[in-house]
Computed example of a mutant assay.
Amino acid sequence: MAESKQSAEVTVSDVHKTIRAAFEAFDYESNNTVDVREIGTIIYSLGCFPTQADLHDLIAEVEEDHTGFIQLDSFLPVMSKVLLEHKFPPIPEDLLLQAFEVLDKEKKGYLEPEELMKYMTQEGELFTQEEMDEMLTALADHEKNVVFYKDLISQLTIDPDM
């Protein structure tokens, strides 16, 4: 009995370490605070993919006094619960591939950054221009100026045993 309780504590400790590391990557002033606009990126980096409505609700829960900043102390327990309960799981890899293949009408294996930007800012759950700029900077093949979506999918999907 004590063994299972101890392993559960290790899991929570590991979750806390993972969340802290993701949070600290965006804590530019090292004061346990991040800009509220970074929270979505932090959550996505942790393998959680909430809808924009869910993300808005989560931010409302952890942002204090609408300051535009999130404290680690507020974020940690909420995000720990999200991770431990496996909320906001990623879309399975095969469904993501099917979605990209629908968008890639010519079956080229890639999308032009402009095409991807159009789809992501005008259809479905809309991304902001800032989010798209960050995404394209990170994901586009800058030599060929395209986004190879099979590479993108491998970056977007997370090993479920992580």
Score class of each variant (00 low, 15 high):
1 M>C: 10
3 E>L: 15
6 Q>P: 00
6 Q>H: 09
7 S>A: 09
9 E>Y: 12
10 V>A: 10
13 S>H: 07
13 S>M: 07
14 D>T: 10
16 H>R: 14
16 H>W: 05
17 K>P: 00
18 T>P: 00
18 T>H: 12
19 I>N: 09
20 R>M: 12
20 R>W: 15
24 E>M: 13
28 Y>S: 08
29 E>D: 12
31 N>P: 02
31 N>Q: 07
31 N>K: 11
31 N>I: 03
33 T>S: 15
34 V>D: 08
37 R>V: 09
38 E>L: 07
41 T>I: 08
42 I>E: 01
43 I>G: 02
44 Y>G: 01
44 Y>C: 05
45 S>E: 10
45 S>I: 06
48 C>M: 15
50 P>R: 10
54 D>V: 00
54 D>F: 02
56 H>F: 12
59 I>T: 06
60 A>G: 13
60 A>K: 14
61 E>G: 01
63 E>S: 07
66 H>Q: 09
68 G>N: 04
71 Q>W: 12
71 Q>T: 05
72 L>I: 05
73 D>E: 14
73 D>L: 09
73 D>A: 12
74 S>R: 10
75 F>D: 02
75 F>E: 02
76 L>D: 11
77 P>I: 04
77 P>C: 03
78 V>K: 13
79 M>A: 08
79 M>W: 07
79 M>P: 05
81 K>C: 07
84 L>A: 06
85 E>I: 01
86 H>V: 05
87 K>F: 10
87 K>T: 06
87 K>Q: 15
90 P>T: 10
91 I>P: 03
96 L>P: 01
96 L>Y: 05
97 L>E: 13
97 L>T: 08
97 L>P: 00
97 L>S: 11
99 A>L: 12
105 K>H: 13
105 K>V: 12
106 E>T: 02
106 E>I: 00
109 G>Q: 06
115 E>R: 13
117 M>D: 08
118 K>M: 11
118 K>I: 12
118 K>G: 03
125 E>N: 12
126 L>K: 15
128 T>D: 04
129 Q>P: 00
130 E>S: 09
132 M>D: 03
133 D>G: 03
134 E>L: 15
134 E>F: 15
134 E>D: 14
136 L>Q: 09
136 L>T: 02
138 A>S: 14
139 L>N: 14
139 L>Q: 12
140 A>P: 04
142 H>P: 00
143 E>S: 13
144 K>T: 00
145 N>W: 00
145 N>V: 02
145 N>E: 11
146 V>G: 03
146 V>S: 02
146 V>D: 05
148 F>I: 12
148 F>T: 05
151 D>W: 00
154 S>Q: 14
155 Q>P: 01
157 T>E: 00
158 I>N: 02
159 D>H: 14
159 D>C: 13
159 D>N: 15
160 P>L: 03
